[in-house]
Amino acid sequence: MLRIPCPHCGVADEAEFRYRGDASVTRPPADAGVDAFHDYVFLRDNPAGWHLEWWQHAHGCRATFQVKRHTVSHVIAWSGWPGEAPP
């Protein structure tokens, strides 16, 4: 059971949240073309290590936020709002 730190509600069980994937990819501008959107939708770094990812507090405040988590140790180093950068 991961314990996820929601920036609004504090730490809560993983079961309260919905995972939304890699937060390091950015949606390209509308005119960027198929290749750029292909990379955005499909290609991932998928690191065995620190991973910046989206979580939604679906059974809480419904906020969407970023979590910096280690995909091997599951250690969570940081969570923050969209647009914020981890230290």
């Binding site: 290609l43 991932r44 770094d45 998928n46 690191p47 065995a48």
Partner: peptide, 18 residues
């Protein structure tokens, strides 16, 4: 599950998450 790590060594990314 380690495909992305090996692909990264070769310089490309994959449509894979582990």
């Amino acid at each position: 599950g380690h495909s992305s790590t090996l692909a990264a060594m070769a310089g490309f990314r994959l449509p894979i998450e582990t």
